[in-house]
Amino acid sequence: MFGHLDTAYSQLTGWLYTEALQPALYALGLMDYADDLYQWLDFAIFGLIGIVISYVVCRPLEAAMPVERWPGRGPVYTDMIYTLLARVGVLPLLAFVLLNGAQSRLDGLIADTGFVPPTLETIFPVLREYPLLALAAYVVVLDFGEYWRHRFQHRFGWWWALHSVHHAQRQMTFWTDDRNHILDDVIAALWFGALALLIGVPLGQFPVILLILRIAEAMSHANVRLSYGSVGERLIVSPRFHRVHHGVLSVGQSGKNYAVLLPVWDWIFGTADFRRDVYPETGDPDAPEGLVTGGWFRQQALGLKRLALALAGR
């Protein structure tokens, strides 16, 4: 079955690329980016796959055992727009092109010193022979980085001003994962990419690593009354675990449960809340109504305004 899936995937990407994307690149005089676009195709398709998997897994669970029921779902529809923009559209492409360019420049500078950057595999040769193990190691390191990025989003006022777009949602569902201010997304991409480059993650692994993290994040945001049990809650972030983080009393610097994939980071750094019967309402009581129920543009504008105020110290 996997062989058929792989064949179907290669046929689909091959057809899309040779029949549509590459001729367009040629016509635009952009053949220099032929390989970059081929890679972006993986980002886009993996993004779509991630959305489909998230929907298939999370939506039935939300319908079967929701934490909350709402009379209308307007804010959820706005979150869907966020998801499409973040997972399939321009953001991954921009991040990839920017990071690729930055990596080239950085590599050039490093090369001038005569230093050849290591990778996890050169430091731990056993990983050479077990690519899946190497992939897992990269996921763990990157997840650790995500934990600290998340801590800082809540720690610094200007960053919280952006991140509060995410926390303002009172109708939290699996779509809420991508509800972020665009500047916050750019910072996140640079943070994630810089760490990945530092530890030697091949750029091409990004789609797979992102797919893993995004599916986990979508599940953790789902409106589902679901705990993974006393052991499971400590192994992987559950909807219950992350809902505590989104609780109305857990915003800003008073937060708990920052982990994205592995709760062990909260455990180690003393920010974990493993109470398994707590399913608080979500949202940010300090957020203006436009940040909660406004459309995409309104929320982006309000995020910028709050950023400016935070930077101005007000």
Partner: peptide, 22 residues
């Protein structure tokens, strides 16, 4: 010839049979 490409682990996810050979 050709141009740059980065590593993609699709086969690791989608084609374990091929990688079983490794």
């Amino acid at each position: 010839t050709a141009s740059r490409r980065a590593t993609l682990f699709l086969p690791l996810l989608l084609a374990p049979a091929a990688h079983a050979q490794t």
